[in-house]
């Protein structure tokens, strides 16, 4: 289906997931997922390590079979028609998947051949992609000489060679330093503009989800616990969170302030949900009581996650795994 028909046919989502489920022995990795993802959006699956993000992508990309349920990708069923699905998608895996002993260019060529692209078309596209991910002058270097960020960029570019309509990115910045991470974000934003594709990205970095995604599903223990744009999700919290360590709190006084949405007290810790805390904080402090310390957190996805799961997402839980694997692989030789 071409872009121009979009207006007429936009009832067909890029991805439609129906009761998708994956069970490993006793463990339910993905639990009856239902989700529609529209064409052209950057959609995020945000969740902690072990939430079932990778398993979901592996099913959507036909690498593993669902235990039950299914999904339609560009209108093709992942169970009944996997080969059509494969032709129309690209994937950047969580772990490094480029071949170190080949050059950047050779990795791209190999990929193009695996997708049946013939010589001329392929060469032209490789040039385009190298330009897009800014690796033109390093294309003949062996991938083992690339930095983690360059390698990620190469894999990002590789996923696009065959003009997929949907690109899946599994934790594309895992294990990268902050600068390389921002660099990857720029490329993702750039390519959504230049290649006009739908992107599904998984991450456990709040910042990444917030910065890149049009919509997000927060996923925990294989289930979607919240769905919406980052803005909508944050609105659920309804404001900023002010935590006070306090003696003799003046609860009645605080209840009369209409910009305070919620009050919770636990021992000498008072938690408030406050609209525009940066403006209203002085008025709170004036009447609250004997305040010993104050902490203000602007409503972040972190809070949203905490609200829905009762836990904090642990950013470092799986950090470094990507680079560890690279090292393991290197030491083999």
């Amino acid at each position: 289906m071409r872009q121009s028909h979009l207006a007429v046919l936009n009832f067909m989502p890029a991805i439609e997931i129906t009761n998708l489920r994956k069970q490993y022995n006793g463990l339910v990795a993905v639990d009856s997922l239902n989700l529609k993802i529209n064409e052209g959006e950057i959609f995020g699956l945000l969740g902690p390590n072990g939430a079932g993000k990778t398993t979901t992508l592996m099913m959507l990309t036909t690498l593993i079979k669902p235990t039950s349920g299914t999904a339609a990708i560009n209108g093709f069923d992942i169970v009944k028609n996997p080969s059509e699905v494969r032709k129309s998608i690209g994937m950047v895996f969580q772990d490094p998947s480029s071949d170190e002993i080949l050059t950047g260019y050779e990795n791209l060529k190999l990929h193009g051949m695996l997708y049946g692209m013939d010589g001329k078309l392929r060469e032209k596209r490789i040039e385009e992609i190298l330009k897009l991910v800014n690796l033109e002058d390093r294309k003949n270097d062996f991938v083992k000489k690339y930095s983690g960020g360059m390698r990620r960029r190469l894999e990002l570019g590789r996923g696009l060679i065959h003009h997929p309509k949907i690109l899946f990115l599994d934790e594309p910045t895992l294990g990268l330093d902050p600068q390389a991470r921002e660099n990857i974000w720029q490329y993702v934003e750039k390519l959504t503009k230049e290649e006009k594709i739908t992107i599904i990205i998984t991450t456990h970095y709040m910042e990444e989800a917030e910065k890149l995604c049009d919509r997000l599903a927060i996923i925990d223990k294989g289930k979607i616990v919240a769905l919406g744009s980052p803005k909508e999700l944050k609105e659920v919290i309804g404001g900023d969170i002010v935590t006070l360590k306090i003696r003799n709190p003046n609860i009645n006084g605080l209840e009369n302030l209409n910009f305070i949405k919620k009050i919770e007290i636990k021992g000498d810790i008072l938690s408030l949900v406050v609209m525009n805390a940066n403006i209203n904080l002085p008025r709170i402090l004036k009447i609250a009581g004997e305040v010993e310390s104050v902490e203000v957190k602007s409503g972040t996805l972190e809070e949203v996650f905490l609200k829905y799961t009762g836990r904090e997402i642990k950013e470092n839980a799986s950090g470094g795994r990507w680079s560890e694997k690279v090292i393991q692989y290197k030491s083999k030789k």
Partner: peptide, 18 residues
């Protein structure tokens, strides 16, 4: 097994080649 250890094998298996 080494292709499996890194995700290179997945990259090959996800291509539309039997």
């Amino acid at each position: 097994v080494w292709d499996k250890k890194i995700d290179f094998l997945k990259e090959v298996l996800i291509a539309p080649v039997s």
